[in-house]
Simulated assay, not measured.
Amino acid sequence: MKVLITGANGQLGFALQKTQSFFAAAGNLELIALTRADLDLEKPDTIANVLDQFSLDAIINAAAYTAVDKAESNWLLAQTVNSEAVKQLAIWCEKNKKTLIHISTDFVFDGKKSSPYETSDQTNPLGVYGKTKQQGEQLALSECTSAYVVRTGWVYGEQGANFAKTILRLASEREQLGIVADQIGTPTYATHLAEMLWQLLLLKPGQRMWHFSDAGVASWYDFAVAIVEQAEIHGLLQRKPAIKPIATVDYPTPAQRPAFSVLDKKNTWETLNLTPVHWREALTKMLQALKAL
């Protein structure tokens, strides 16, 4: 099977390349990893011409505009990458009878629920980023009959910019950190998300909308505390700064974020035959991999 991934230099693109043996173990795989320089989603009108150069079976769209706060002022760019480009990917896949896997986000929900969000729950994004991702997932499903949408959240890994690596940097620079404690979700190790995507592509079940993250629940404060504690254990930090829990109102940002965005993954784990991994265990694996780089 020939699979093209977008966003090859991003944290999920990196993880997909790192875990390609997960798929290859069950079948032949030829991976075509395209960077932004190869396929620029900011230019949707060029997408079809680029894709026409390859003989493909599937596309995994691991690229996105993910600058949540900047999206509030760069609405057009966010919409171009997260919506218009996805439409063109979906149209091409439908025309050529190929599979599309598109990655979406927990930010399509408003965070007003108090139990994990199911795939059937009503979406109601609070900001531009969430709205453009909502549009993207709708376009993927409507324009391509063989498209899958996978919602995830709080993704981190060894590669790219993410919360975990930011905390490691700040912890080495500051004596004290203030971290938001009233936004609740679940961290997702990019490697585990990549393995889930490979399994989805292998099995190709009938269900089209999926939720995935690691197991457990955390606030950003919980996540930061665990990052610092584990980093010290693994020799990635020489000292631990004090970490103070703060409220969202004490850390104003241009974009409003959902207060609760835990996703229900039970059906994903069962249908795709995946073993749940708690986010703390996943964090340890990531820090070990980071240290080995």
Rank of each mutant, 00 (worst) to 15 (best):
K2W: 06
N9H: 09
G10T: 01
A15Q: 07
Q17D: 09
Q20G: 11
G27P: 08
I32W: 03
I32H: 05
I32S: 03
I32A: 03
A33K: 01
A33W: 01
R36G: 06
L39Y: 10
D40V: 06
L51D: 09
F54P: 14
S55E: 15
D57R: 12
A58L: 01
A58Q: 01
A58E: 04
A71T: 08
N74L: 15
L76P: 06
T80L: 11
S83T: 14
E84F: 14
V86H: 13
I91P: 07
I91R: 13
W92I: 04
K98A: 10
K98R: 15
I103M: 00
V108L: 08
V108A: 07
K112H: 14
S114V: 13
S120A: 07
Q122S: 09
P125N: 04
P125L: 01
G127L: 00
Q134M: 03
Q135A: 11
L139F: 09
C144Q: 15
A147H: 15
Y148E: 14
R151T: 03
W154E: 08
Q159G: 05
G160F: 06
F163R: 01
A164Q: 00
K165N: 08
T166W: 10
L177N: 08
I179V: 12
I179M: 06
A181Q: 13
I184H: 05
G185L: 04
T186N: 02
L193G: 01
M196A: 09
L200H: 06
P205W: 12
P205Q: 12
Q207T: 11
D214V: 00
G216D: 00
A218H: 08
A224G: 07
A226D: 14
A226W: 09
E229D: 13
E229Y: 05
Q230M: 09
I233V: 10
L236V: 10
L237P: 11
R239E: 14
K240M: 12
K244V: 11
K244I: 12
V249C: 07
P254A: 06
Q256S: 11
Q256A: 10
P258N: 07
K265N: 05
T268E: 02
E270V: 03
V277K: 08
R280S: 09
M286D: 02
M286P: 00
K291G: 08
K291N: 13
L293Y: 04
